[in-house]
Structures are given as structure tokens and as C-alpha cells.
Simulated scan of single mutants.
Amino acid sequence: MTSVVIYTTPGFTASSWCTAFNQAAVHTFPAIASSPLPAGTVVLIHSGRSDWQTLVQQHSSKALVIVISQQLSITELQLALTLGGKGYMDAGSNSVNFVQAVNTVNSGALWIPASLLNQLNQFLSQVIPSQHSWQSFENRLSKREYEVASLARRGLSNKVIAESLFITERTVKQHLTATFAKLGIKDRLQLIMLL
């Protein structure tokens, strides 16, 4: 099992952390750990700490870092990624989301909340020149894959996509997995950045 270290603010913990990772695998530190972290450790750093930016820079060269926040914002997301973070999420997320986030960054992809993907899409479309139109990918995907990917690009969650298209969330995940493979990408952020 992946070792998880959480640098939190004094007095802040969430029961979902221990539920997600088996209590024995979670180490929380209000203070900076003095000993080196084991290889393969995923480090979660609470952005409420005054030293969170330093911690992200310090750990991102040796470990996968996810910044957790009680007030998600596009500005903080951008800063977390710029400093070397591989994920950004709500500190109060449920245990399933924590497991998904850790598994996602372990697989080499980024973890970004669906609620911020649309804002990020707008930001990226302003700063990255478009080399392709989204329609140019339509012939590489099945009709349903294209529909699912189009909605995912707009920042909609799997649940909302499933409800919109009258399919299950599992089917949405299958279509996104197939789309990522066909387009040679790993995650939703890369889907947005194709344009």
C-alpha cells in the first residue's frame, strides 16, 4: 500500500483520510517531519499552512504531492501546479476521492477537481494558442466517446455526464479511458490542452 503523509494545519484532520488509506499508512504532521520519507510516498499538503508553498517545493522533487484546500480556487490550483504539485483537491473530500486522487497521481496523471476544470479550460484557451479545433478529433472517436469527451472538456463531472447522456458513470469512465488511449493522453487536463 502507498504510504501517505499529510502535512495539515494544527487541529485539522478528516476521518476520510484514515478511511481512505488505512490508518496505519497515514502519518499527519503539524510540524515538518525530520526524517526522510519512504520512496513511493504520496504527500498531501494543506494550503492553510503558512509554509505550504515551501513544503510543495521541498517534496515535489522526491515525491508525488497533492495540495489539499478548504477553499478551492483557480489561483491556488495554478500555484500548486507551478510549484510541482501533481494534484489539488478539497481537504474535506470523501475517502473515495482521496483514493482516486492518489491512484491518479501514481499513474502519472494530474488530479484536478471537476469544479475547477471549466475555469482552467478558459484560462488555458487564453494562454495556449489553439493548433487544432476540437472537431478535428471527432473522426478518431466513436460518436459516444466524442459526446462524453466534449462534456468532460467543459468540466462536468462523470455523474453529470452520465445523467446528461442517460448512461452509467461506469460507462462514462469506459468512454473516457478509450478516448484517452485513442488520443494518446492520460487525463482530463491533457484533453483540454490538446486544443
Rank of each mutant, 00 (worst) to 15 (best):
V56I: 06
V56M: 00
Q57S: 07
Q58H: 09
K62Q: 15
L64T: 00
L64Q: 08
V67I: 03
I68E: 05
I68G: 06
Q70P: 06
S73T: 10
I74P: 04
E76M: 00
L77H: 00
Q78E: 07
A80C: 10
L81V: 11
L81T: 04
T82R: 12
G84R: 01
G85R: 00
G85A: 12
K86L: 02
K86C: 09
Y88F: 03
A91D: 01
G92L: 10
S93R: 02
S93M: 06
S93A: 14
S95H: 13
Q100C: 09
V102Q: 02
V102A: 07
T104S: 02
S107R: 02
S107M: 04
G108R: 03
L110E: 06
W111R: 02
I112V: 09
N118V: 10
F123L: 09
Q126G: 14
Q126T: 14
H132M: 13
Q135V: 02
Q135M: 01
S136Q: 09
E138I: 01
E138V: 01
R140V: 09
S142V: 04
K143W: 05
E145G: 11
E147I: 13
V148I: 06
V148R: 05
A149S: 07
S150N: 03
L151F: 14
L151A: 11
A152M: 05
N158H: 14
K159Y: 06
V160C: 04
A162D: 08
T168R: 14
E169Y: 07
E169R: 15
R170E: 14
Q174C: 08
Q174S: 15
F180V: 09
K182A: 15
I185H: 09
R188S: 06
R188Q: 13
L189P: 03
L189C: 10
Q190W: 00
Q190Y: 01
L191M: 11
L191W: 04
L191S: 07
I192H: 01
M193P: 05
L194I: 03
